[in-house]
């Protein structure tokens, strides 16, 4: 555990840093620590924010000193080391996507850029589950790991001013979903009818950091049908489980 640094982030923040890499195993450790702490959630800890390779722990410095908090975190890290043999499972959330057409105006570019057919791009994009390393940028925006380099594509030279909520994009070797309407420069390959962010709901976000996402291709008719269910509140997200940190090709 000597490669873990615990550093300051203001008077009410501590960063537990697992290393300077974007790597599924490192990210899985971040989420394991977050789960361990939130399972017990000591009252002096206010909020946890997992990111690629570190966990931010916001605390109340009038209730606990930084040193005492650091000791507590080290105990959690020790208990994680003891239980690391145990296979952890993560939730996989299914994201239905209508690829191409008006929903994915850049799908053909991504295909021709990689000398693939449109069908091959869709097949590769839907062939595995993607680890949600962290959420950020806008409410509910997932930073996903694990996309195949075979469908990588550069960002648009000129970002779009308005990208509709639910748009699925590719930028470099990353893929992601725009949870709210926003400007952006990603190549758009499709759109999901699901609502990633619903502030009026008791459960405002469709998925959390540490979950996995799996894209499934749907046609325009199914898109409209699911959209109706989402709007009426009757849609139930399809979820499964996967062993954390490993290739999730068979999940769901």
């Amino acid at each position: 555990m000597s490669n873990i640094n615990i550093v300051k982030a203001g008077e009410q923040g501590v960063v537990v840093d697992f290393g300077d890499v974007i790597e599924p195993g490192v990210n899985a450790r971040v989420h394991r620590l977050a789960q361990l702490i939130s399972g017990k959630m000591p009252h002096e800890i206010l909020e946890l924010v997992p990111t690629y390779r570190s966990l931010m722990v916001y605390f109340d410095p009038l209730r606990i000193s930084r040193d005492a908090l650091t000791d507590k975190i080290r105990l959690f890290l020790d208990s994680d080391a003891e239980s690391s043999e145990k296979a952890d499972t993560a939730t996989v959330v299914s994201i239905p996507v209508c690829y191409g057409g008006e929903f994915g105006p850049d799908l053909e570019f991504v295909a021709s850029h990689n000398k693939l057919s449109v069908e091959e791009v869709v097949e590769i994009h839907t062939s595995r589950a993607y680890q949600v390393y962290m959420l950020g940028f806008t409410p509910g925006f997932p930073y996903l790991g694990g996309m195949s380099d075979r469908i990588a594509a550069p960002r648009l030279a000129q970002p779009r001013v308005v990208i509709p909520a639910g748009s699925i994009g590719i930028a470099g070797s990353q893929t992601g979903i725009y949870p709210i309407q926003s400007p952006g420069g990603w190549q758009l390959i499709g759109r999901t009818p699901l609502q990633l962010f619903n502030p009026g709901s008791a459960d405002p976000f469709l998925f959390a950091a540490g979950n996995y996402l799996r894209f499934t291709a749907i046609d325009a008719g199914t898109f409209q049908e699911i959209l109706r269910q989402v709007e009426s509140g009757s849609y139930k997200p399809v979820t499964g489980t996967v062993k954390q940190g490993e290739d999730a090709a068979c999940a769901l």
Binding site: A9, G13, D20, V49, Y52, M134, G136, Y143
Partner: peptide, 30 residues
């Protein structure tokens, strides 16, 4: 540049041009 991580109001980010930005109430979370 760093691998994006968490921040909150008060964080002093320094982009490549060296001019500090103090993050305030509406700042992004990372």
């Amino acid at each position: 540049d760093i691998i994006s991580d968490a921040l909150s109001a008060g964080a002093i980010q320094v982009p490549g041009d060296g001019h500090p930005i103090v993050m305030m109430a509406d700042c992004q979370t990372t």
